[in-house]
């Protein structure tokens, strides 16, 4: 964004989730976004068949974080051959829960007048970072101490050419909140928190050394299986 305009949360470019050859001519590409506190599935539907497509509907299988369509798929007019439409589907997180492998896997069924089609996609876990994820400083210190060291995971974010202020701002626009910053022996240590929509808190320490393009991310969480997905989100948020 320009001067005075917040950068906004990072959104991965759309990718093809359902190739036309697997869906009798229906091609679906999409991505996920969190905008103003609402999770959205952003879809492009392309008709590569020789007949008109109508009667679209979408359904999700149970998934790790209860993602579920919060409205019907809004395709109001028939989709003509060679036509593409953009559809935004708002999602809620109060649907049925079932742990998926990988954790961020989502199985989707889309129907139209021709058939029902199935595909899987992966969502970035940062779409689940809640707006109220800034942990009280005292609670952070107590929680950091309380979570066993075995639950700490450490990662290297390579090619991260940001100073700590730029990193703080980028992360904050994705609901990763910096609670404290310290400089020890020339390196900046940022203490950060985020809260997933299901109430799981993640605590982070991000070390940034001037002149070193690699940052060290340490994550502490009572549900350590989420850590690698949080790391993937940090990489995407910091590099974009």
């Amino acid at each position: 964004g320009g001067v005075g305009i917040p950068a906004g949360a990072y959104v991965i470019p759309k990718s093809v989730w359902l190739p036309a050859m697997k869906a009798k001519g229906l091609e679906i590409s999409g991505t996920f976004a969190r905008r103003m506190g609402t999770i959205q599935m952003e879809l492009s539907l392309t008709n590569k068949a020789m007949q008109v497509m109508t009667d679209f509907a979408i359904q999700f299988n149970r998934n790790s974080f209860g993602l579920s369509p919060a409205a019907a798929l809004q395709v109001h007019t028939p989709l003509s051959p060679n036509q593409t439409i953009e559809v935004t589907l708002p999602l809620s997180t109060v649907g049925p829960v079932m742990k998926m492998d990988p954790l961020n896997n989502l199985q989707v069924a889309v129907k139209n007048n021709i058939d029902v089609f199935y595909f899987s996609c992966l969502y970035p876990i940062n779409i689940l970072f809640a707006e109220d994820g800034k942990m009280d400083r005292q609670v952070f210190l107590a929680t950091w101490k309380d979570i066993p060291n075995d639950n700490e995971a450490q990662f290297q974010v390579k090619d991260c050419h940001l100073n700590s202020e730029a990193a703080t701002n980028k992360l904050q626009s994705n609901n990763v909140f910096t609670i404290a910053k310290r400089n020890v022996e020339g390196q900046d240590m940022l203490y950060q928190s985020m809260k997933l929509t299901n109430g799981i808190w993640v605590l982070a320490e991000l070390r940034i050394q001037p002149g070193n393009p690699s940052c060290t991310l340490s994550l502490k969480c009572r549900a350590p299986e989420v850590s690698q997905f949080v790391f993937q989100s940090y990489e995407a948020m910091l590099k974009n």
Partner: peptide, 20 residues
Amino acid sequence: ELDDGLDEAFSRLAESRTNP
């Protein structure tokens, strides 16, 4: 701002993480 001891606690945490 009130010094609630937390500033010092974060300094100790950062220090202990750098020099365990």
